[in-house]
């Protein structure tokens, strides 16, 4: 992506939501904008409609748990298929009670992506039509991709990993 394209995107965002932007960076040619979590849906809707951006394709979304910050980041990746621009939007939510509005009003594709994010991180998407677990069993009580849950059962005694420090 050229510099001018990136400037166009940030200018479009600045028109209305300048106060929402926390950080703009380019990570491996990928424009990444961190915004405040309150108005994320409005920001995405703005970028969806704005003639200079038209991000009308949701590539993927996922969450990341940062135990040191005690925060969960929700990452949206948008794509404009016509001009072939990509944009990554990030919001940070408190890890204890992550709540954010649903994106299914803009993209129907967000339905299962949000269910997956809820399933693994416990992020509650308010207004989601059917927010329940999708890949894990329904009576699971933890959110397994959070960092506090280790991969293997720590009480196991039949495996000795001291040599290789896994």
């Amino acid at each position: 992506m050229e510099i001018s394209e990136q400037e166009k995107i940030t200018a479009a965002l600045n028109e209305k939501y300048e106060d929402q932007i926390l950080r703009i960076e380019t990570l491996y040619d990928f424009l990444t904008i961190t915004v405040k979590s309150e108005k994320i849906i409005e920001v995405i809707q703005h970028l969806y409609k704005h003639p200079h951006t038209k991000f009308q394709f949701l590539t993927t979304m996922c969450a990341v748990h940062y135990p040191d910050l005690n925060q969960i980041a929700v990452v949206y990746q948008l794509h404009n298929l016509v001009s072939n621009n990509r944009l990554r939007l990030k919001i940070y939510l408190p890890a204890e009670n992550p709540v954010t509005p649903t994106l299914t009003t803009v993209f129907p594709a967000a339905n299962w992506m949000e269910r997956e994010t809820y399933d693994f991180y416990g992020v509650t998407f308010t207004g989601h039509p059917q927010l329940k677990r999708i890949l894990n069993v329904e009576d699971m009580i933890i959110f397994p991709l959070r960092k506090e849950y280790p991969l293997e059962d720590q009480t196991r005694e039949d495996k000795n990993d001291t040599m290789f420090g896994r």
Partner: peptide, 26 residues
Amino acid sequence: GYYLISDGGRTPFRLHFRRPCFIYYQ
């Protein structure tokens, strides 16, 4: 798609797979 976050360690900090059929099967 592979969305990879590395924190400088020996393993990924986070690896998310963008799996096409998970998205279109809905």
